[in-house]
Design a protein around this nucleic acid. Structure first.
Length: 333
DNA sequence: AACTCTTTCAACCGCTCCCGT
DNA sequence: AACGGGAGCGGTTGAAAGAGT
């Protein structure tokens, strides 16, 4: 029985707010007077390179699909072994785990099930303990303060649930992730359907077949932009990238590439992840300079082609050669 | 009351990171 | 430096319960 509090959102008239400044771009979604969420552009893709890398990864996953499952070799996953229980934990199992850890600590999770006499894999035990049985876990609904903290941290850190959880004592990354996903999905789906669009949020990139008009943006005094969404269906990455939001983001990335102030460094969270991923200064420069992607055909069909043509496993920077690379060089020099 | 739809969240999967050898 | 194994993380799934009709 799940007795957890299930908040309902009534009379929600969601608004999307584009908050632009020279160093960052975020998308704030307001549901009610006290419920709002914001997404930084960097939480989707920190730059053009990462965007395309993500697209390439998605294509890879689509292509491999079932073959990957069939091809699996090597060690059997711990949870797939015979005699290992899966699914919901019983009270007896919980008690065994709690008793064992209180007496001995968890030690090596892999060995714990045998030592404790549980027919579970170590991974399952760790998850059960960390997400549910730990004595310091805080249960119940999220307070407005916690909501604000999550919103703020998510906008700067992206989906780093563990990092966000470290700022919220007693809350687990899983709880925060679930909270965020359920609310955000609801919000975006509602915003999309309200504007006559597709409510699917998990469609693969290549399923988008419509041309994409930009999100309609009005600019009130003060630099913020408030609007309801006005976009048809399709993939959110593509839509965002093609929209004025994406354009603003790309402009923002260009500004960042020429800014060396402490303030700009502090706001470069998303770009840091890019640097980490690429691990090379030149590549980071490429990462910063995404403006050249504006040359791409502004249609989902072009995006589909890009997705299908994107190299996987080879030199990820190949596509920067030619006109794109030229644009990069000129903007970087 | 019975059925369907919606929502939540515990649990699993697959991947990456880190550390020891 | 290369490799293997364990731990941790983020994305996703699906069961269960509530809400709506």
């Amino acid at each position: 029985m799940k007795s957890a509090h299930k908040p309902k959102i009534h009379n929600n008239t969601p608004t999307l707010k584009l908050i632009k400044n020279p160093l960052s771009l975020s998308l704030s979604l307001s549901l009610t007077s006290h419920t709002s969420f914001s997404i930084s552009a960097s939480s989707f893709f920190c730059c053009g390179n990462c965007f395309l890398k993500r697209m390439g990864k998605m294509r890879e996953n689509v292509e491999e699909g079932d073959n990957k499952k069939k091809k699996r070799k090597g060690r059997i996953a711990c949870c797939e072994k015979d005699g290992v229980r899966r699914g919901a934990w019983t009270n007896e199992e919980d008690k065994i785990l709690v008793d064992f850890i209180s007496l001995h600590g968890h030690g090596t999770w892999r060995n714990l099930p045998q030592l404790a006499g549980l027919l579970r894999c170590g991974k399952s035990c760790r998850l059960r303990w960390n997400n549910y049985l730990r004595p310091d876990i805080k249960r119940g609904p999220f307070s407005p303060d916690e909501e604000n903290t999550i919103t703020r941290l998510q906008s700067t850190l992206g989906n780093k649930w563990a990092a966000i959880a470290s700022h919220l004592p007693g809350r687990t990354d899983n709880d925060i992730k679930n909270f965020w996903n359920s609310h955000l999905r609801k919000s975006l789906a509602h915003a999309s359907s309200k504007s006559g669009g597709d409510t699917s949020l998990s469609q693969p990139c290549h399923s988008s077949t419509t041309t994409t008009p930009p999100l309609f943006l009005q600019t009130p005094p003060g630099g913020s932009t408030t609007t309801t969404t006005n976009h048809p269906g399709g993939d959110y990455f593509i839509r965002l990238w093609n929209s004025e939001i994406g354009e603003s983001f790309r402009d923002g990335a260009t500004v960042l590439s020429h800014s060396h102030s402490p303030a700009s460094q502090a706001s470069n969270v998303g770009l840091l992840s890019c640097k980490k991923e690429l691990g090379d200064d030149d590549d980071v420069a490429a990462c910063y300079s995404s403006k050249s992607y504006e040359e791409l055909d502004d249609s989902s069909e072009a995006m589909l082609k890009l997705l299908l043509d994107f190299p996987v496993g080879g030199d990820d920077m190949e596509f920067l050669q030619g006109p794109v690379g030229d644009a990069l060089n000129s903007s970087h020099s």
